[in-house]
Structure formats: C-alpha cells, structure tokens
Design a protein around this nucleic acid. Structure first.
Lengths: 94, 94
DNA sequence: GCGATCTGTAACGTGATAGGTTACAGTGAG
DNA sequence: CTCACTGTAACCTATCACGTTACAGATCGC
C-alpha cells in the first residue's frame, strides 16, 4: 500500500506541459480537440484522464500515453485502497 | 505502440485465480461481495476492472491490486490507440 | 475607465458505464 | 430427473465523460 496521496495527474500536466510551452488552458483545449471546460476539470482534479484523453495528450505533447494513464491508475488505486476496509470480501487464497 | 491485442484481464483472473483454486464463478462472486452477473461480465471481457474491483481481487486472492489495474490500463490503452488517427489533435511540442 | 482575453464553474443535456435484481435457458453430474 | 453452475437478457439506478451556453472575476493594453 502506497504511503502518500499521489497528486492528481492534472497538476502534472499543467506543470510539465502547459507552463513550459507558455500555452494557455484555452489554447491547449483547442489543440487537444476538447472543450475548455473538460480540460479545466482535468487540470483541477475534478475529472480523470480517460484512455482517449491520454492518447490526445500523447499526440499534442509528444509524451507517452501510458505514463499518463499509469499516473491516473496510481491515483485511483490510492483512493480505492482508502476504502479497502469497507469492502465485504472473503479471503480465498493466501 | 504495442503490437498485440492484450488479453482482457478477465481471462487471466479465470486462469490464474479461479481454476487453480477450483472455485466456481458463483462462489468467487460471493467471496468478492459482488453479483454473479458482474463477475461473469468481467471474466468474459464485457466489463472492465474498476479500481474498487482490483482491491476486492487483491483481498480475495492475495494478489496485487496494482497488477490487475495495470493490466486493465494496458487493455484500455491498446483499444484507445486503435482510434488514435480519428482524434482531432494538434501537435504542440516535439 | 473600457474592451479584450483568460479562467473557473454552474446549469443544462447526452451517451456510456458499473453496479444491482430477477428470470430464463442450457449444460453437466449424480 | 434433479440439482448446481453458467451465460445472459431485461430492467433499474447512480455516476461519469463529454458537450454547449452563460456568467463572474481577474488581468492586461490602451
């Protein structure tokens, strides 16, 4: 179980993609082919990165779609682990 | 871009978890605390493994939640990549 | 001050997904 | 035949990923 709350990938996108290029949210949304609202939600952690969005990011920013998706997975998993004890599951194997 | 269509994680669950333990779909669904229908859908590739489901699997079968989720990510990503050319995205960086 | 631009976000809608229950038909063991 | 297991269809609900439109606040040039 991971110890630290991983940052949502939106933060990372902002810092690693938008800011270095001096690109505004509006411009980036247009380039990605999505609405400004959708990108804003991602950047501010109110939306997850879908597989399709990961591919869009990889095209626009020349990065690996897999890395964005893995970051999202780590983020989701951490939050799911926080609710682990509330799940009614019977252990079947060691 | 990955070359081969990765198997859906349901196949792997069946082969690596249910069959070695001689556990039926019905029994496994009860242990996981989900409906038989939901498990059947996962095993037959008609449903994805959610973060919560990954945690359930990790409890019941003593496996890593992360590995199930990563498998799902690879599967989703492969299918998203297949539609890469249909996305209207402008390249912003090299 | 004034207009232009950027930003977050609320209010709506759509289509897809994850989950549930119930019910039915097919298979295989005994 | 009977019983357990299985897939799956029909139906419901809640949530999510998108979209458009519209508004309010910040910031900038002039």
């Amino acid at each position: 179980m991971r110890m630290h709350n991983p940052p949502h990938p939106g933060q990372v996108i902002k810092q690693l993609c938008l800011e270095p290029l001096g690109v505004s949210v509006t411009q980036a949304a247009q380039a990605l082919g999505i609405s400004r609202k959708t990108l804003s939600a991602i950047l501010n952690g109110r939306a997850r990165i879908s597989p399709e969005m990961a591919v869009r990011l990889s095209i626009a920013f020349g990065t690996s779609a897999e890395s964005w998706l893995n970051q999202q997975t780590q983020y989701d998993l951490w939050h799911a682990e926080q609710r682990r004890k509330q799940l009614q599951v019977t252990k079947l194997a060691v």
